[in-house]
Amino acid sequence: MNSKFYRVAGITIEVRSDYSITENTFHPKFKQFAVDGPGDDNVMINHHFYLPDSIEERCEHEIYNKSQWQVFKTDKAWKFKYHPVLPEDPPHSVMGIFNLSYTALDIYTDEISEEAYKNSRFNGVTLFNTDQILFAKLLCDRNGLIIHSNGFDVNGNGILLAGDSGAGKSTLSRMLKKRGFDILCDDRMFVRKLQSGFGLYGNWCHGTVPDTSSISVPLKAIFFLEQSKTNRAILMDDKKQIARKLVQSMVKPFLTPEDWEKTLTVIEHLGRTVRCYILKFDLSGEICDMIEKLFQGNKNLFKEDN
């Protein structure tokens, strides 16, 4: 098989390869995203196992060079050159040439053998250390963005757990999982503005905890976490504070000014549309009851702080 289709956040990614794609080419987490064919919104990725000719001449106008990445731009394409730096990075260098809308990608590497490709269990379809670069742009063009958060499905209601490192996302996530709620993704949540409200989408771009899901649910609440000795959820009504926290929580994308304008507009709508709370919780697990009851109509539990 030389092609596979995966769907996430309503976007179908077709991966075509010069080599055969086996069940071990991509990590098992991709099985839940697999679909039979194209959808309404399609992106094509081609994997090639050589380097294109004159690649240096085609790489004009370097705009970023740090750590794993060199990024170049021409008037027709983006060029991403990735090479491993950290021990956990995929151990191969990759060059990606993306069209300006990121809907057609050519991925080149001469460091992966056919045998290795068949068994590598890649964590991403771009073969980079993350597919975040791809999705930041795709979501931007679809009224969406990536938020640094964990996402859960609480009885059909999507919630985001956001906050600084150490705020308790992992702790609360463990509690919610123990309670039986489905986690959509660890650390990176896809959000899209829809005709009515916002959608929350599980995806495969997880953080250190390999929790992923293809589930999508309406986004109903965003919780900005603070560890505490009590359990309280304080409805935020200061739109400026909400906007500030959402901007701080977004995964900063590599985008043009026009794309940034779109993304910040989405953030503005998000803050106006979805209820946001400061969530203070202790380690008792009681907060999970409170979160569940929020969607059972018991809004008395969530009052403005006095």
Partner: peptide, 28 residues
């Protein structure tokens, strides 16, 4: 820079070579 007013505050995103500068802080 690109600057956008959101809810009465200004969010400022530094750019480099006409793309968002990933290494720079955003300001408000």
């Amino acid at each position: 820079v690109i600057a956008k007013e959101i809810e009465g505050e200004l969010v400022i995103v530094p750019m480099i070579a006409d793309v968002g500068n990933l290494d720079a802080e955003m300001y408000s």
